[in-house]
């Protein structure tokens, strides 16, 4: 029995690495039919596969489209596991809220971060572009995210990040959430100066940063 179970999980992992959505669904179901615990399927099949995808992306073997396709495959498998994971620790890595600050319409960088965080198992709520402090505060209250990410691509909008952090402070909820910032004009020094908890120069490192902050 053990041999069959390992074989199915390996096939599941390999199908995920190739971004084969239907095969991932098939092998997830097969593993369940073989009475493999949902948490084992998640850890040794889906997450193990996404770990390989992450390595291939960092080594330049995969581009973003491949990563997103693999993430889609992972979610297809996860959908089958979710009802069985209730009460276990594998459902979601946590919630992240993302937004581009007021006065700034740049969107695609934030969307890439969102997609890659989702691929890493986080639930991501994208509150859009040109977002004012009030909406950021409201979103933190409503969604209670582990991490709030702010993006700015302009030198004239980056300072609004401080306005948002001050607003969260004034509302007494700054300590309830980790804050990360990113965007072309932003750097580590700026992140510290506005009171953010972290900065990432690209989407891949943003995922690593969120993992570090949520593990703490």
């Amino acid at each position: 029995m053990e041999v069959i179970e390992v074989g199915t999980l390996e096939k599941l992992r390999d199908a995920l690495i190739e971004g084969k959505v239907e095969e991932v669904k098939h092998y997830t179901q097969q593993a369940l039919d073989e009475n493999t615990p949902a948490k084992t399927i998640l850890d040794q099949g889906l997450i193990a596969g996404m770990d390989v995808v992450g390595v291939r992306f960092k080594e330049g073997e995969y581009f973003l489209p491949e990563v997103l396709l693999c993430a889609k495959a992972m979610h297809a498998g996860l959908d089958l596991l979710k009802p069985l994971l209730v009460g276990e620790s594998g459902q979601s890595a946590g919630t992240v809220v993302l937004g581009t600050v007021k006065g700034d319409l740049h969107d695609i960088g934030k969307r890439i971060v969102k997609a890659m965080l989702e691929g890493a198992g986080y639930e991501v709520i994208d509150i859009g572009v040109d977002v004012d402090a009030e909406k950021f505060v409201e979103s933190v209250r409503k969604h209670k995210p582990l991490v709030l990410g702010m993006s700015a691509l302009l030198t004239t909008t980056m300072r609004y990040m401080k306005t948002v952090i001050d607003a969260l402070q004034n509302e007494g909820i700054r300590d309830k959430v980790k804050i990360i910032v990113g965007g072309a004009p932003v750097n580590e020094e700026f992140a510290k100066s506005v009171g953010a908890d972290g900065y990432a120069p690209n989407a891949s490192e943003a995922v690593d940063l969120v993992k570090r902050l949520t593990a703490a």
Partner: peptide, 8 residues
């Protein structure tokens, strides 16, 4: 050119 960090 564009402005240094400052709000509008």
């Amino acid at each position: 050119f564009t402005l240094p960090p400052m709000d509008l």
